[in-house]
């Protein structure tokens, strides 16, 4: 059930590089406990939005709050409340998965890093990988350790940037299972993705970004109710094309 304060809330949030507008003023609310799928073509501004929401980038105008903390006024409190998995994460090759995770657990201020790492490894069912060097891992293995570093401090909001990029079908399936488990724990998940099938299966609400503008935003239930006949792919193509035309 949605709570009063949204997990992610933006008002007129925009980003420009010189004359180029990367993100037009964006106003968006993602309620707590949602799995929000953020769709859009390459270069639509999805990664920029995540970078703004994770304080990696300063907005040109507007405001944004994540877990109740303003991106500009309270960056440290905000960062303490989020987890982030960028696209194509590689981690420290020379270190084992456990050593990598201990490092990030300490940086997150986890009270008992050793315990937190053990629990997270068990939660993701990757304990067998713990003492192997990350340099020897496949893309899918790295992605799971990357996900572990993003959730080991039990964040309120988890940001995933193209988490299925480069994964094989088995990897995609495992990731979906993890997302479902995290959703079950009440975590809000904000996920950039291209894969409509994943959105259909995992997300509870979606937003579509086209050329830096939010052109669609609704719950998956509403999508199913109203656009059942056209299907998600047609809906996406239609709103994205409309966004381009606009």
């Amino acid at each position: 059930m949605p709570h009063a304060t949204p997990a992610v809330s933006t008002r007129g949030l925009s980003k420009s590089h010189g004359e180029t507008v990367v993100l037009h003023p964006l106003s968006l609310d993602v309620p707590q406990g949602e799995v929000f799928g953020f769709l859009g073509h390459n270069g639509a501004g999805k990664t920029t939005t995540i970078r703004l929401l994770t304080t990696l980038l300063a907005p040109t105008s507007g405001s944004a709050c994540v877990a109740g903390h303003d991106v500009t006024a309270e960056p440290l409190k905000l960062r303490a409340a989020i987890g982030y998995l960028p696209e194509n994460v590689r981690l420290y090759d020379q270190f084992t998965a456990r050593e990598n995770l201990l490092f990030f657990a300490r940086l997150s201020g986890v009270a008992d890093p050793v315990d937190a790492v053990r629990e997270t490894l068990e939660f993701l069912d990757i304990t067998a990988l713990a003492d192997r060097r990350v340099g020897t891992f496949s893309k899918g293995m790295r992605q799971r350790v990357g996900l572990a570093q993003a959730i080991l401090h039990d964040p309120e909001v988890l940001f995933l940037d193209e988490p299925t990029s480069g994964l094989d079908p088995m990897g995609v399936r495992q990731l979906r299972a993890v997302i479902e488990k995290l959703h079950g724990r009440g975590m809000t998940i904000f996920m950039n993705t291209h894969l409509l099938s994943e959105v259909a299966r995992s997300c509870t609400s979606i937003g579509v970004l086209a050329h830096g503008r939010l052109v669609f935003n609704d719950s998956m239930q509403a999508v199913a109710d109203r656009y059942d006949e056209v299907g998600l792919e047609e809906l996406y193509a239609g709103v994205a094309a409309a966004g381009v035309a606009a």
């Binding site: 994770t54 304080t55 990696l56 440290l76 409190k77 960062r79 303490a80 989020i82 982030y84 960028p86 696209e87 194509n88 994460v89 590689r90 981690l91 420290y92 090759d93 990030f104 940086l107 997150s108 201020g109 570093q149």
Partner: peptide, 18 residues
């Protein structure tokens, strides 16, 4: 270079430290 090549810079900068 070590941090940039592995995307770990983004992971560190989204931790609660200035």
């Amino acid at each position: 270079a070590a941090e940039r090549g592995r995307q770990t810079l983004a992971l560190i900068l989204t931790r609660p430290l200035p």
